[in-house]
């Protein structure tokens, strides 16, 4: 019985991906891409990898969908409706042959490896030492904490990169106003924002706390928080902050910094990112709670995009769009 579910789901995933890539209209492509992200979340549920399903549904369908919708709108306002020019038949034929060969090779390689939960047996005996039961959180924050530390810096780095795209002379302005122009819609979005932000905060706090024993974690929680922040910004319930607000900068850096400090403190217990005996859970929760705040703020600002609205600099008027 489960076989039918997996096969139908996989066929729908391939169909949604194919349409998302090759349909002419840009919005149809994005709508199919959001559906593709949701179906992928189901694929991870089918694989009983609920941690990944949470991340895929929250990040893949939620944040990436919003990101692409806003990007398409901004391109449309610039007169670019993101439809593709046709490529030459030769290029298409050559690419088709190459990719088909690539898929066959990849499929052969994949089929030659019998799927089995290899490292699960290696991780299981080490879990009691950490005091948590969720093995994925154990891997993410204890056995491979180094990757997660770098990942939190990559997220921060991406925000710095997006901010660096602001036109010259607009620093330290604010991102484009996300507010809705249409008044009835603004009221609906505002009330949804006022409902969603507290719920997102509670949901995120629950996900981080539960993340040590049942599926959850800082990244999934951060994404839910980012969703709440985005809707509040769209509804005008909250304004987008100036990039140089000290409070904002602390919030953005808090997660990675706490992670790094706890990692350095580990030097006293045997090595970088080694948690002291018996208090691993406390260290992990301290890291995760500071991390999810930074991730929520960072993702929301990543979606808001580079600064566009300059700040009236008392020294000299920074006009909004100085030619760069």
């Amino acid at each position: 019985m489960t076989g039918a579910f997996d096969i139908i789901l996989c066929l729908m995933i391939l169909g949604a991906a194919g349409i998302a890539l090759f349909v002419r209209d840009a919005l149809a492509a994005i709508a199919f891409f959001i559906a593709f992200g949701n179906l992928l979340g189901l694929a991870w549920l089918g694989l009983d990898a609920v941690n990944v399903a949470l991340a895929e549904i929250a990040l893949g369908a939620g944040v990436t969908g919003v990101l692409l919708i806003l990007a398409r709108a901004r391109l449309l306002a610039l007169g670019d409706d993101a439809t593709c020019a046709d490529t030459s038949a030769w290029l298409r034929a050559g690419a088709l042959a190459a990719c088909a060969g690539f898929v066959l090779l990849l499929a052969a390689a994949v089929l030659s490896i019998p799927p089995e939960s290899g490292l699960d047996r290696a991780v299981a005996p080490l879990m009691p030492g950490l005091g948590i039961e969720n093995r994925v959180t154990g891997v993410l924050l204890a056995f491979r904490a180094y990757d997660t530390l770098l990942e939190s810096f990559v997220l921060l780095g991406a925000l710095v990169a997006v901010w660096s795209l602001a036109p010259a002379g607009v620093w330290p302005g604010r991102p484009a106003d996300l507010g809705v122009a249409d008044v009835p819609m603004r009221r609906v979005a505002r009330s949804f924002g006022r409902f969603l932000l507290p719920v997102a905060l509670v949901m995120a706090a629950y996900l981080v706390w539960a993340g040590s024993d049942v599926p959850g974690g800082a990244f999934q929680a951060g994404t839910v928080l980012a969703g709440g922040l985005m809707v509040s910004a769209i509804g005008g319930a909250i304004g987008l902050p100036r990039s140089d607000l000290p409070g904002l900068r602390v919030a953005l850096v808090l997660g990675p910094l706490v992670f790094l400090l706890i990692g350095l403190a580990g030097m006293g217990f045997g090595g970088f990112l080694v948690y002291p005996e018996g208090s691993a859970k406390a260290a992990i929760l301290a890291i995760e709670y500071s991390l999810f705040l930074s991730i929520g703020a960072t993702l929301a600002l990543l979606v808001a995009g580079p600064n566009v609205i300059g700040w009236p600099d008392p020294a000299g008027g920074t006009d909004r769009h100085s030619d760069c």
């Binding site: 694989l47 990898a49 089995e116 939960s117 290899g118 490292l119 891997v139 491979r144 990757d147």
Partner: peptide, 17 residues
């Protein structure tokens, strides 16, 4: 990473990252 009995946590962690 999907064995008969359990799902390997390592690929899950890599994929989340």
């Amino acid at each position: 990473g999907r064995g008969a009995d359990a799902t390997d946590p390592f690929p899950q962690a890599l994929v989340i990252t």
